[in-house]
Nucleic acid binder design. Structure first.
Length: 858
RNA sequence: GCCCGGAUGGUGGAACUGGUAGACACAAGGGACUUAAAAUCCCUCGGCCCUAGGCUGUGCGAGUUCGAUUCUCGCUCCGGGCACCA
C-alpha cells in the first residue's frame, strides 16, 4: 500500500470506475423503499462556484448515506438553461446563446464529475432542450383550457436594462432581482398564471410541511398575505352614476364604518377618470392621474412620499348611514391591493387622517379609547382599541366585537360582509426575450387567441438567428418565426412572441427527472407516483419565496389536472447558508485579491490594505475561491470534507485556507494510520468478545459510540460538522493505541473498518480506496451502513460530578449502577468535597443518576 | 411599523429533554526530531487570583430553579421576511 495519500490519482480512478459501471443509475423498483434526493439545479453560468460545491456535497452525503441504508435512491442533476446571461454573452461576444449554454454545461458537467457526486447522469437534461419545454408548452395549454392562464393588459413591472417584464416575486425592494436596476411600471399585455386561485391552499399547506424550515414557511405566509376583513359596497351618486352602481372597498376595520368621511381611489382605478369625465373636474383629475402614473414604484412607496389627491366631483353613499361622502383620487392608494378603492376613516387611520387635515375633510370619531377624543384637537389617528360611539345601534360595543357584528349586519342587509383579501398577485410569465421557452399560442384576427394543436408541439425556438450589431432580437423581430397560419381557419396569423419566465421551467423539473423515458410521454404515472414527491430538497435560502412558491403552485395545478397525486413537491427542505470569505480592501483601489496585498499593503499604491468583512463570495469583491484550484491542490475529498466540517449546513460557511489544510491533514492522518498497520489490518481473524478489557474495551466503546453519533447527526439533523468531529475523536484515540495482542488488533481492525465506512458518504474516493486496500468486499458505496452494538457502549464506571450549592466541587469515578447512598458516601469521602461540607448543614441532596450529585448546604 | 431568527474563547463552531460551558478544529506560544526546511509528534491555550485550589465567565438587566448557554420577562445590537396592504 502506498505510504502517501495521493488524492488526484485515487479520485480519477474511482470516478472512472463509477462512470464505467453506471454505479448511480436509479431504477424504479416497487419492492424497495424509494428516496428521491434533489439539490436545486444550477444555471450554467460557466463554472461551478463554492456555493455549488457546498450544496451538492451536502446532497451527496445524504444520497450516499441513504443508499447505504438500503434505500432505492434517485439522485439526478440537470441544467436550468434558459435565461438572460446567455443573451448577454451573445451580445458581448457574438456567440449564440445556445452554443454558449451548451459549452458551459459541458464544462460544468466535467467539474461536477470531478467532485465525485453520485448522480444518475442518464437522467440529465437541460431546460432548453425542446424535448423538455415541449411538455411545459403542453402543460401551458392544459392550464389555458382550464382557465388557469389568461392574457390581460395591466400595469406590469418593467426592467429597462433587462428589457423585459418581471413577476412581483422578482422585484426586490423595487429593484430587478437579477440586475438590481430600478423597476418601472408599464401598461402592457401579457400572460398570467392564476396563482391567486391557490392562495388559500398555498397558505393552508404551510401548516402541513413539518419538514420545512419555519422561516421559509413564514416568508411564504407573508408573501401570500391573507388578511381578514369585510367587503362593503358604497352606492355612488353623481353625474355618471347608473342605478345599482357601487364602488366596492375592502376593509379590515368594518368597526369604523360609521366614521367614513370620504373615499379614495387609486389613480389606476378605472373609475378615477370615468367619474370625472365631462365634469369641471376632468382636467384636474386627468392631470393628477397622469402625473402619479409616471412615477416609479419606489418613489411612490417611499416613507416621505407626500400624500396628495384630487376630488373627482363624485359622491358615494355610506350604506349604513346614508351619508354622502366625496370621492377622491389619492396617490397613496394601491390598485393591486384590495379593490383599489379605500373607505377613508380619518379618525382611526393615520393616512386618512393626514389626508383629511391637508384637504380639510371632516373627521368623525367612532371609537372611544380611555382618553376622550376631540376631532378638533387630535394630532394623529387613534388606532387603539375602544368602544363604539356615533355608530347607531352599535354604540357601546367593544370594537373587536363590532368588527364581527357590523360585518354580519351588512351581510343581512346585502350591502357587504366578511371576506378575506390576499396580497399575492397572479404570476406574470411573459418575457420579451429570445432565450426562453416559446408560449404556444397563435393570434388570429378572425379566431382570436388559438392554442397550438398538441401534435404541433414543441414550438421550437428558432436557432438559426442573426445577432445584428451585438443585439439579441426578441422573437417579435423574427418574421420567419412569428409568421404562421391559424390552425382553426387557415388564414395568416401571428405566433405569440413572448417566451416564458425561466421560473416556469424550474417549477416542474423535479417531475421530469422521475420520468426517464421522455419519448414515452412525460406523465408516466407509474414512474411519477413511485418517485415523487421529492423526499429531501436542498438549496439556497434565496429561493424561499420565488422558486419554492412557484413549484408548490405548479404541483397543485398538476394535481387538479389529474397528472399527479401529490399535494406538495418537496416533503423535506434543507436551506443551506452562503459560502463567505474575508475581503481585503484598499482606500484607493477598493477590493483587492489576496495576491494584491503584500505585508498588509496594497501592491498598487502601497497604502495599508484593511481586512474587510466576511462576505458572500463574489467576483466583484475579489474574495472568490475557485473550486478547480482547490481540487488541484488538495483533491475533491478535502474540498468536500472541509465544506461539511466548517459549519452546520444552515449557517453561512466561513471559508479559510487554513481550515482546508486541517481537513487535508485529517485525511492524511487516517491514511497513514491504515498504511502503517496495513500488513495485519487485512487479516480477518475474528476475536472473542469476552477477552476485551482495559484500553481495548475503551476503543471498542469509542468505535460504537462514533457509529451512533455519526448516524444520529446525519439522520436527524444533517449536522455533518459534528459527525466529522466524532470521527476525528475516534482517530485521535486510535493513533494513541498500541495494538499489541490479537485481541487489540481485532478491536483496532473493527474500528478502522467502521471509520472507513462512516467516512464513505463524505469522502467517497478516499474511503473506497482504503476499503479496497483493506480487502473489503465489493464496492463500499453499496456496503451496509454499520449498526452500533448497544452492549459495547456499556460503561464499567460512570463519572458523577459533585456540586455543592450548584458549584462543581468534585468529580467521582464510580462503578456503574452504584446506588445513591454509595455515591453520597464516596462524595463525602472526597477531600475537596468534605472541605466544603465542613461546618455546614445539609439541607437537601439531588441525585441525577450517572450525572450529578448536588448537595445543598446552609 | 408588524412578524421571525441570532448573539458562546483570538477564529469556525460543540453542549442530548434544565445537569462538568468551550467537544472537534483553526490560529498563537513553547518543545522534540532534522545540517536546515517541509512533514510529523508532544505540551499550553476564556479571564483573574494567594495557582493543591479559588473567584469569575455564554450580548445586557431581572426572575424561576438545588442547578440556566438552555425556560420566563424587559432591554441592546446584528441578520432576515413583509410594509402608505386600507
Amino acid at each position: 500500500m502506498n505510504q502517501k495519500y495521493m488524492p488526484q490519482q485515487i479520485e480519477l480512478k474511482w470516478q472512472r470506475y463509477w462512470e464505467e459501471n453506471d454505479s448511480f443509475a436509479a431504477t424504479e423498483d416497487p419492492s424497495r423503499e424509494k428516496y428521491y434526493l434533489l439539490e436545486m439545479f444550477p444555471y450554467p453560468s460557466g463554472r461551478i462556484h463554492m456555493g455549488h460545491v457546498r450544496n451538492y456535497t451536502i446532497g451527496d452525503v445524504v444520497a450516499r448515506y441513504k443508499r447505504m441504508q438500503g434505500l432505492n435512491v434517485l439522485h439526478p442533476m440537470g441544467w436550468d438553461a434558459f435565461g438572460m446571461p446567455a443573451e448577454n454573452a451573445a451580445i458581448e461576444h457574438g456567440v449564440h446563446p445556445a452554443k454558449w449554454t451548451r459549452e458551459n454545461i459541458a464544462y460544468m458537467r466535467g467539474q461536477l464529475k470531478r467532485m465525485g457526486f453520485s448522480y444518475d447522469w442518464a437522467r440529465e437534461f437541460a431546460t432548453c432542450d425542446p424535448s423538455y419545454y415541449r411538455w411545459e408548452q403542453w402543460l401551458f395549454l392544459q392550464m389555458l383550457e382550464k382557465g388557469l392562464v389568461y392574457r390581460k393588459k395591466t400595469f406590469v413591472n418593467w426592467c429597462d436594462s433587462c428589457a423585459t417584464v418581471l413577476a412581483n416575486e422578482q422585484v426586490e425592494q423595487g429593484d430587478c432581482w437579477r440586475c438590481g436596476k430600478t423597476v418601472a411600471q408599464r401598461e402592457q399585455s401579457g400572460w398570467f398564471f392564476k396563482i391567486t386561485d391557490y392562495a388559500d391552499e398555498l397558505l393552508e399547506f404551510t401548516d402541513k410541511l413539518p419538514g420545512w424550515p419555519e422561516k421559509v414557511l413564514i416568508s411564504q405566509r407573508n408573501w401570500v398575505g391573507k388578511s381578514y376583513g369585510a367587503a362593503v359596497k358604497f352606492p355612488h351618486v353623481g353625474p355618471h352614476a347608473a342605478e345599482n352602481d357601487a364602488i366596492e372597498v375592502f376593509t379590515t376595520r368594518p368597526d369604523t364604518l360609521y366614521g367614513v368621511t370620504f373615499m379614495s381611489l387609486a389613480p389606476e382605478h378605472p373609475l378615477a377618470l370615468a367619474l370625472a369625465k365631462g365634469t369641471e373636474h376632468e382636467a384636474v383629475v386627468t392631470a393628477f392621474v397622469n402625473k402619479v402614473k409616471s412615477e416609479d414604484k419606489i418613489s411612490r412607496t417611499m416613507d416621505d412620499y407626500e400624500k396628495e389627491g384630487v376630488f373627482t366631483g363624485a359622491y358615494v353613499t355610506n350604506p349604513l348611514t346614508g351619508a354622502e361622502v366625496p370621492v377622491y383620487v389619492a396617490n397613496f392608494v394601491l390598485m393591486d391591493y384590495g379593490t383599489g378603492a379605500v373607505m377613508a376613516v380619518p379618525a382611526h387611520d393615520q393616512r386618512d387622517f393626514e389626508f383629511a387635515r391637508k384637504y380639510d375633510l371632516p373627521i368623525q370619531v367612532v371609537i372611544q379609547g380611555e382618553e376622550p377624543l376631540d376631532p378638533a384637537t387630535m394630532t394623529e389617528a387613534y388606532v387603539g382599541e375602544g368602544v363604539l360611539v356615533n355608530s347607531a345601534q352599535f354604540n357601546g360595543t367593544k370594537n373587536k366585537q363590532a368588527i364581527e357584528d357590523i360585518a354580519a349586519y351588512m351581510d343581512d342587509m346585502g350591502i357587504g360582509g366578511k371576506t378575506t383579501n390576499f396580497r399575492l398577485r397572479d404570476w406574470g410569465v411573459s418575457r420579451q426575450r429570445y432565450w426562453g421557452a416559446p408560449i404556444p399560442v397563435i393570434h388570429c384576427d378572425e379566431c382570436g387567441t388559438v392554442p397550438v394543436p398538441e401534435d404541433q408541439l414543441p414550438v421550437t425556438l428558432p436557432e438559426d438567428v442573426e445577432f445584428p450589431e451585438g443585439r439579441v432580437l426578441p422573437l417579435a423581430n423574427i418574421p420567419s418565426y412569428y409568421e404562421t397560419t391559424c390552425p382553426k381557419c387557415g388564414k395568416d396569423a401571428k405566433r405569440e412572441t413572448d417566451t416564458m419566465d425561466t421560473f416556469v421551467e424550474s417549477s416542474w423539473y423535479y417531475s421530469r427527472f422521475a420520468c426517464s423515458d421522455y419519448d414515452k410521454g412525460m406523465f408516466d404515472r407509474k414512474r411519477l407516483d413511485y418517485w415523487l414527491p421529492v423526499d429531501q430538497y436542498i438549496g439556497g435560502i434565496e429561493h424561499a419565496v420565488l422558486h419554492l412558491l412557484y413549484s408548490r403552485f405548479w404541483v397543485k395545478v398538476q394535481r387538479d389536472l389529474g397528472l399527479t397525486s401529490m399535494d406538495e413537491p418537496f416533503t423535506n427542505l434543507l436551506t443551506q447558508g452562503m459560502v463567505c470569505k474575508e475581503t481585503m480592501r484598499c482606500p484607493e483601489h477598493e477590493w483587492l485579491f489576496p495576491e494584491e496585498v503584500e505585508d498588509g499593503k496594497c501592491v498598487k499604491c502601497g497604502q495599508p490594505a484593511a481586512k474587510g468583512r466576511v462576505e458572500k463570495m463574489s467576483k466583484s469583491k475579489k474574495n472568490v475561491i475557485d473550486p478547480e484550484a482547490l481540487i488541484e491542490a488538495y483533491g475533491a475529498d478535502t474540498a468536500r470534507l472541509f465544506s461539511l466540517f466548517a459549519s452546520p449546513p444552515e449557517l453561512d460557511l466561513d471559508w479559510n485556507e487554513k481550515g482546508v489544510e486541517g481537513s487535508y491533514r485529517f485525511l492524511r492522518r487516517v491514511w497513514r494510520m491504515v498504511a502503517d498497520n496495513a500488513d495485519w489490518l487485512i487479516d480477518t481473524t475474528p476475536y472473542s468478545e469476552g477477552k476485551i478489557e482495559g484500553r481495548a474495551k475503551d476503543i471498542r466503546r469509542k468505535t460504537h459510540d462514533t457509529i451512533r453519533r455519526v448516524t444520529k447527526d446525519i439522520e436527524t439533523r444533517f449536522h455533518f460538522n459534528t459527525a466529522v468531529s466524532a470521527m476525528m475523536e475516534l482517530v485521535n484515540e486510535l493513533t494513541s493505541f498500541k495494538a499489541d495482542s490479537d485481541t487489540d488488533r481485532a478491536v483496532f481492525r473493527e474500528a478502522v473498518n467502521a471509520l472507513v465506512t462512516l467516512l464513505c458518504p463524505m469522502v467517497p474516493h478516499f474511503s473506497e480506496e482504503l476499503w479496497e486496500e483493506l480487502g473489503g468486499e465489493g464496492q463500499l458505496l453499496n456496503a451496509k451502513w454499520p449498526d452500533y452494538d448497544e452492549a459495547a457502549l456499556a460503561q464499567d464506571s460512570m463519572v458523577v460530578m459533585v456540586q455543592i450549592n450548584g458549584k462543581v466541587r468534585g468529580k467521582l469515578e464510580i462503578p456503574t449502577g452504584a446506588s445513591q447512598e454509595d455515591v453520597e458516601a464516596t462524595a463525602k469521602a472526597d477531600a475537596n468535597v468534605s472541605k466544603h461540607l465542613d461546618g455546614k448543614k445539609i439541607v437537601k441532596v439531588i441525585y441525577v443518576p450517572g450525572k450529578i450529585l448536588n448537595i445543598v448546604v446552609r
